[in-house]
Structure formats: C-alpha cells, structure tokens
Nucleic acid binder design. Structure first.
Length: 457
DNA sequence: TGTCCACTGGAAGGGAGGGCTT
DNA sequence: AAGCCCTCCCTTCCAGTGGACA
C-alpha cells in the first residue's frame, strides 16, 4: 500500500513560480514604479498625523488598476511603521531624559501623548501599547460596506480592540453608532485616517449624509483628530455631492493617470523578479501582457492577472517555461471565468429574467422589449410554481443585468407602440445556457419554449 | 399639433429578518 | 417579551417621455 496523497504529485511537481502571491493585485510591494509623485504628495499630506496635527482630507481619482489602492495602502503601512518607530524612540529616550527636559522638547506628538498619561507608568506595557497605536489607518471598501450604518460600525470596530465591545451589524440607532464611534476615536487619541475606497458606490446607494457627518467629525472629537481619504474611479462623482461636502472632502486632490504599456512592463518586471524562478518566463511574455492590458485603459490589475493566469496554465500543463501561447489562453480563460462567476452569483430572480431573455433570443426574437421579457418570465415562474415579481421590479433587474454587462439595453420609442427598452444578450447564448442549466432552480425549465411574441417593429 | 402607447424610473412605504435595549 | 432600529427586497403609485399617428 502506498501512503501517497492526491496532492503529492501537484505539491512537489516543478513549478515556474517562486512566489505566486506577489502577482496578486492585493500584494503591496515595497516600491510602486511610476507612482513616486503620488506617493510623495500623499506622504506630504499625511505627515501631519505624525506631528499630531490634522491632515487634510484627500480625494483620489483614477481608473481601475492605476494603483490608487496600492499607494494608499503602502502609505498606510509606512505611516504606522514610522509612528511605531517614533514611539519606540520616545520610550528609549525617556529612559535618559527628565520630565522637564522632555516638556521643553519640540516633539509635539509625544508631548501631547505624554500629557494624557501618567508618566509614572512610562515603562509599563499599557502605555507602550497606547504609544504604538496613536496613528490609526482604517481602510474600507465601500463596494461591500455601502450604508451609513455599516461604515460607522466598520470604523468603530476597527478601533475597538475588545471583542465584547464591538458594535453589532444591525440593531442600534445610527446616531448611537455615531456617538460610540466618536467615543472610540477619542479614547484612542492621536490621529485616525479613514480611507473610503470606491466612495462613489457608497454615495450612490446611501446618499452623502455619511460624508457630511464624517467630514465634520473633528468638531465633535475632544481628544483626537480624524481625516478622510476618498477614492473613486468616477471622475464626475463629485458633481452629485452636496457643495459643502465637496469643498471639505476635496481639500487636496490626487489624480492617477492610466499606465502606458512601457510603465506596465516595468511593473510586471519588478513583480516577476520575485514571483518566478530563473528563466521561467519567455522574454515575449511580459511585453505581450503589458500591451494587452494597456489596450484596456492601462489597467495594472489586468496585466498582473494575465501574467499570473498564463503562468498557472503553463504550470498545469507541466511546462517549465511560460510562453506567448499561454498568454493567449489566459485572455480567454479570464473572460470565461469572470462571466461564469457573475452568472453563478446572480440571485434566483435575476437568473430567471436572464433565462427569459436568453430563451427569447434563442427563439429568434431580435427585438426583445421589457414587456416580452416580463411575459416570458411570468411563464417561467408559472412553470416553477413560483410567485412572480412585478414588472417594475423586473425593470430594475434588467437594469442590473445591463450594468453587469451580461445584456445590453437601449431605451427606444416606437411612437404609438410606446417607449420601452430593447434588450439583447452581450455574452454567448449557448455557453450562458449551459451555465444556467447547472443550477438546481433552472435545470427543469432550461429548454422551455417561450410563446411566439410579435415584435413591435 | 395633440393624442396615445408602453413603458421608464423616482419616491414612498411595507414587511420580513436580524439584532439591540430595557 | 416588547419595543425599537437597520437592511434588504419588494410593491404601489405616478409623473414623465419619445415619437408615430390622426
């Protein structure tokens, strides 16, 4: 009997990778090529936190994959590191200097902290902990944390260290959450920087009340300071903001322009050095990945994904070198995987609507309207003995599918025939049907024939 | 030029589900 | 247990719309 494990062959087989994680977009390298200007600008703003002064609020614009999040996260890491270093220096020095000498010193930050603590405990662990966390950097991605309540609890919970004191995900009145947040920031002291990534998603869903409150948080804080960094890829985002929020939030603005192919190449080269074994990459691979990503508005995330997936495909085939062929394959794979994931995670009602559209298109209706899709959807529901949603709700689901890029819609008027939306599939009908057919809900009606519907044209 | 169609899409609110406070 | 609050998903209501047609 062999005691080998199914993973053994894969685990110990030769790989082109030295460290795959380096190619993830979430990995933050020590250096970010071609973002030196933005790094310096942001550091110049946030250095105030190290002096216990309030840094300006910052607004960061730039398309997907232009390094906004990476820069902000890198600066955060550096800021916290520096704060710890300074506090350590303070503790070391305080062994040698007297209180008077320290009070006469010029280090405002530590003098402030010192004023709030009993100096007799200077060497205690508690004080040391307080000192090392007096700069707080809280990152929130508003794509998921997209309501006023959630943002407030998220910030508060990032500061509250005791698990039992953490705020619940629902249940409390919002003003109560705000008060507890103030208390936790005040108790923490120092400077709290709140980063709201994809801030446009937050405002789109919940309005700008939350931003109004957060930009005025310093008025309510007694013992601490806070500032906001908003990140968005929507250049017109601030047009929808309340003028007061707009001026307070946009004290400083940073623009991240897209990378060009040469810059993307530098980024990939830097990561590849760490990510791959020697000679594992054909020299044509990085230029190709860069060129393909540059075509799509200079998206570094796309370039990194392409490189990583190409190498994974090479690995799986047991090749010891990544060549151009794998990049071409990777392009296809990434596209298919993205679509499959989006469809798979759709709620059941959206899947039914999509199936309605798909079946009509398959039956040859090339001028599909909202009304026709709704009729087919109702038939599908009847077949499944499910209650159907209203047409109003279905128009929203159709809009969502449109936003996801699964279908394309266009509002048209047929004169007396009325005004409606023309709908068509944007992804291949056959493969989508296969994906939908795999779900338990739809497997029995996947071949339903929609009633013949007359188009308005 | 006014009418009419089949919607679109904003606004308001209901209610289920989850969770807190008293 | 009761009362309250939040989120999410949904319904109901309704003003507004573009363009063919009479």
């Amino acid at each position: 009997m062999s005691n080998s494990n199914v993973f053994d062959d894969i685990l110990y087989s030769k790989s082109v990778f030295n460290n795959r994680e380096v190619l993830r977009f979430t990995y933050i390298p020590h250096q970010l090529p071609h973002r030196e200007l933005q790094i310096n600008q942001l550091a110049a703003i946030l250095v105030a936190a190290l002096k216990n002064e309030t840094p300006s609020n910052v607004f960061i614009y730039g398309k997907t994959g232009t390094g906004k999040t990476a820069v902000v996260r890198l600066i955060g890491k550096e800021l916290e590191k520096k704060a710890k270093e300074l506090s350590k220096k303070f503790l070391d020095r305080s062994l040698e200097i007297t209180i008077e000498q320290f009070e006469n010193g010029h280090n405002k930050l530590w003098r402030n902290i010192y004023n709030n603590f009993d100096f007799s405990e200077i060497y205690g662990q508690d004080l040391k902990n307080e000192l090392t966390k007096s700069v707080n950097y809280i990152y929130i991605n508003c794509q998921h944390v997209d309501t006023q309540y959630r943002v407030l609890t998220h910030i508060a919970n990032a500061i509250i260290s005791d698990w039992d004191d953490r705020l619940p995900l629902t249940g409390l009145p919002t003003d109560e959450v705000y008060n507890r947040l103030l208390a936790s920031i005040d108790e923490f002291g120092g400077v709290t920087t709140i980063i709201l990534d994809e801030i446009d998603k937050l405002v789109e869903k919940s309005g700008d009340d939350i931003l109004y409150n957060l930009t005025r948080i310093n008025n309510d804080l007694k013992n601490a300071k806070a500032n906001i960094i908003g990140i968005t890829n929507n250049l017109k985002f601030t047009d929808f903001l309340d003028a007061r929020v707009k001026s307070t939030l946009g004290e400083e603005e940073l623009i991240f322009s897209p990378y060009n192919a040469a810059q993307l190449q530098d980024i990939l080269n830097q990561r590849a050095e760490e990510a791959f074994n020697l000679d594992a990459l054909d020299p044509t691979v990085i230029p190709l990945c860069s060129a393909l990503a540059a075509q799509e508005h200079g998206d570094a995330r796309r370039a990194l994904d392409l490189l990583r997936v190409s190498a994974e495909l090479a690995d799986r085939e047991g090749a010891n070198r990544v060549v151009e062929r794998y990049v071409r394959k990777a392009v296809m794979k990434i596209e298919q995987d993205t679509v499959a994931e989006v469809i798979d995670t759709l709620p059941p009602q959206s899947k039914l609507v999509l199936l309605g559209i798909l079946l009509n298109e398959e039956a040859g209706s090339n001028k599909l309207t909202t009304g026709m899709v709704f009729d087919t959807y109702k038939e599908l529901c009847k077949n499944l003995k499910m209650d159907s949603l209203t047409q109003r709700r279905i128009t929203d689901l159709i809009s969502e599918l449109d936003m996801l890029g699964i279908i394309g819609t266009r509002v048209v008027s047929f004169g007396r025939g009325g005004r409606t939306r023309l709908i068509q599939m944007c992804i291949p009908v056959h493969s989508t049907k296969k994906l939908l057919g795999k779900t338990d809900l739809l497997k029995d009606i996947i071949n339903f024939k929609p009633p013949v519907q007359s188009t308005l044209l």
